[in-house]
Write a protein that binds this DNA or RNA. Sequence first.
DNA 1: GAGCATTGGATAGCGATAGTATCCAGCAAG
DNA 2: CTTGCTGGATACTATCGCTATCCAATGCTC
Lengths: 223, 223
Amino acid sequence: MKVSELSDLSGLPVQTIKYYIREGLLPKGAATAATRAEYDDRHLERLRLIKALREVGDLPIASVKRIVTAVDDDSVGLHDLLGTVQYALGPRTEPHAEDSGWQAARQDVDAIVAELRWRVLPDAPTRDMLAQAFLALRRLGLPIVLTQLRPYIEAAILIAEHEVGAVSVEGERGKTVQTAVATNVLYEQVLIALRRMAQEDVSARRFGEAADSGEPPHGAGGP
Amino acid sequence: MKVSELSDLSGLPVQTIKYYIREGLLPKGAATAATRAEYDDRHLERLRLIKALREVGDLPIASVKRIVTAVDDDSVGLHDLLGTVQYALGPRTEPHAEDSGWQAARQDVDAIVAELRWRVLPDAPTRDMLAQAFLALRRLGLPIVLTQLRPYIEAAILIAEHEVGAVSVEGERGKTVQTAVATNVLYEQVLIALRRMAQEDVSARRFGEAADSGEPPHGAGGP
DNA sequence: GAGCATTGGATAGCGATAGTATCCAGCAAG
DNA sequence: CTTGCTGGATACTATCGCTATCCAATGCTC
């Protein structure tokens, strides 16, 4: 297919597609002449993945590139791919290690991981991410108690087990891998949205007086 | 205290503090002369909150502003504050409603919320957020099954109940409110980090190095 | 096979975001 | 009285993620 068709089918401007090719997110089309190239379904699928990672996952271009590079690399196994994705998602703001409070927070994290006997690499970005949150909470005068943390840990385990269990290793690698990436990034958004909704619900029952005690208004739908 | 002290204590450059004041994130110091102003602990605390929301929550300045404005407004109750925070967090990428697939995704979301009898406002941004994820999943050929969703819903409820239960309504409003905001934004990061860690753990056990059969991962791991 | 639209490839520009840097003048304390 | 730190204003910068423009070579239509 032509680039204009690719554009129509993906919903992305031709210029953006060109940009993605320049950035190495999308392979070039098969050149049929100096000013002509042929694109196929793989391009379209890749474009859809990029779109999902950008629009839903809100990943920067550089992160998307790292992910698709790993997806395309047949020598990368499923578990390593997960690692790549998590590095790409990483903590958006890098911590600076000279901070004394940082060291403490990071040690708290390491202690928790050790106690849970989780197989998490020592330099996994998730450790930094968690430590950063701990540090911020401490600085705000909200110390982390393990009992406070328990429900989060249980929820995390519940979900992770479900997710990894849902990955089917059958079929061709490309499909499996794309599914794994999408699950990781998109269901994270699903989880976040559901948590916020549940929060609103529980909060409404507890503090909300404005909402009538009856059912949520049915007909009041709309934007 | 002087602005330079505030800078030292908060770890933010003086120029950045000035910038935050310009943007309305931080109130001006009490002017003692034309070129002198006095800052107090409230300024420091606010700065720490801003820092946490920016660095951990990764919120744009405009969102932080909306949040602190609500925090400062005594007429805003706890539940409404939550709403403000959720609007500020919102879906980063706005959906365009003309898409036909969007309508369907959004209806799926509304149906789920209705079935769960959750008290979520009809125009809550979380609905759009979830619909966006649904739409992206569908476009990638990964339809959403309710059984797939169950663990997420259960986890969300588990966490939300724990969180809202932890909010103490006693004490002065300022503290309560700051705690509520911090809980919302920072523990979201905690949850995300924990989920990713748990994923790595489960994945390591399943696909990790000690792989027995199937495809041995070619150690070309992280970046 | 003439003519017009479309492409690939390259380069330049743009708008938003989040700060930095500079300048100026008024104080403040030694 | 001098030194150096403010507050306030304005200007500049860097990064990101696209857009826009240009050009020459095609392809497609008639």
